[in-house]
Amino acid sequence: MEKKRTSPLAFIDRLPNPGLFRMGALITLAVVLLVVVGLVWMPYEPTAMSPDRMQGISAAHLLGTDKMGRDILSRVMYGSRVTLMVALGTMAIGAGLGVLIGAFAGFYGGVLDEIVMRVMDGLFAFPNVLLALVFVSIFGSSTTHVMWALGIAFIPSFTRVVRSEYVRIKHLDYVKNARLQGASNARVIFVHMLPNVRGVLLSNLMIGFNNAVLAEAGLSFLGIGSQPPFASLGQMISEAQEIFFTVPSAVLGPGIVIVLMVLGFSLMGEGLRPATKGLD
């Protein structure tokens, strides 16, 4: 009998909305490609100035040049890398610490849980951009500090879902069984219970990533984080605002990359949601 070969992408067709998911995946792929290509090759050195200032789109400069004659495409490639790195780092910090704190708070409960969750509520109420502003004004402005600041700002969103999941499952039979069989608390928390939070974690990561991209872009627009002459998307837009009419691509280039970076993930997320019918 011939072995039936299924494409590894076949799962897409079984999704509630494969069209949206595909569109999102393509957009994300394009952005990742831009970043990956930028790692090995960029048309110009992104910080290299040249006398060809404020040029429009041409074969030599696909997105034109900025006020200092730097190639916009190269700067977009570099800036996307920074934004992507900060967003991924933010998620690693936020999810890592958030899962840890949420798991312990949910597992042990009691006063510890109460205090931790009140702190998380307080942290959650503050806009992440504002927390990052406080953080960098205390520790100084750098890409790493922005990443840590945003990472900490994202902790509560993970802590909340992980904690409630742990509270829910800690009384289930299989967890009780594991404890009866003498598994240590640490083993129960990480080996037996942790796999259960994958679902909620994934959707939180997708939303969190998008918020991190937007927050980083906003902060770098304010001049916080990556410092000149190194490019970041928000800062490029900020610098190019006054030359928008001369070189529209100086604003549109980095702007559209930010939009695509966020849109790709959110369309993929939408593709996973079941279709709903209305009242009428």
């Binding site: 906003g218 627009f221 900020s238 604003v251 930010i258 939009v259 695509l260 966020v262 849109l263 959110s266």
Partner: peptide, 11 residues
């Protein structure tokens, strides 16, 4: 909506 949510206000 998805597109609008992806556009940062400064852009």
């Amino acid at each position: 909506n998805q597109v609008i949510m992806a556009v940062p206000p400064f852009f």
